[in-house]
Amino acid sequence: MKILIPIKRVVDYNVKVRPMSDESGVDLNNVKMAINPFCEIAVEEAVRLKEAGAAEEIISVTIGTSASQEQLRTSLALGADRAILVESDTELEPLGIAKLLKAVVEKESPDLIIMGKQAIDGDNNQTGQKLAALLGYPQATFASDLSIADGKAVVTREVDGGLQTVSVNLPAIVTTDLRLNEPRYASLPNIMKAKSKPLDVMPASDFGLDIAPRISTLKVSLPPEREAGVIVESVDELIDKLKNEAKVIS
């Protein structure tokens, strides 16, 4: 089995970003970048399938600027066999990304595509579902458990009310949720080895697809601030405030 893992370079989850002073966008100067945490979980899942003998090859792919090679190298250090960078200097939308990923899927013919449920910057939660639609593949989103047997993937999904289990025919798209696994750290020898693994670069423009953005950002601003609160000294004071000041309990 061949597994494709689309990954994304994002701002590290510890960074609290702010809008630029002219509100034209998010201020990303000098912020720490990392693999999107959900994509890290996707890489880990693919590596575990390979370790268990269920997969032979893992290919990671990202669409982004040349700086994203760093995250592809990380995926190689974590266990991917080779990587593809579809290079684009312009910001793309999930639809455009899904179209480019579709072209990569058609070229590589993976049996399984594992990706993050959401990128923690755009918080769109769309790309996997859109890719599945464009390919006509089934999708199993928000996975907390994945097993492969008889040409199918059986996936437990985290849904609002609890858990749902579905079976999807391969090839399929699975998007990861937090509890699917706990990603490992790359070891130093593996980081060194990753430097010599293949990483192909191809310009997005070579694909000849309509990936022009449909959405423009007019403004990026701060959310409304909460007014500073108070520290109460006792449970009695808390109850008094909730009853008589905030009036949220009776």
Binding site: P94, L95, N124, Q126, Q139, V159, D160, P213, I215
Partner: peptide, 23 residues
């Protein structure tokens, strides 16, 4: 924007060739 909406709506958007506006 529930787990159900998040699951099928992007698929609808892609079938219609539009960019979903999330959340």
């Amino acid at each position: 924007t529930t787990t159900s909406g998040k699951n099928f709506m992007p698929r609808v958007a892609a079938l219609l060739d539009v960019s979903q506006i999330s959340d």
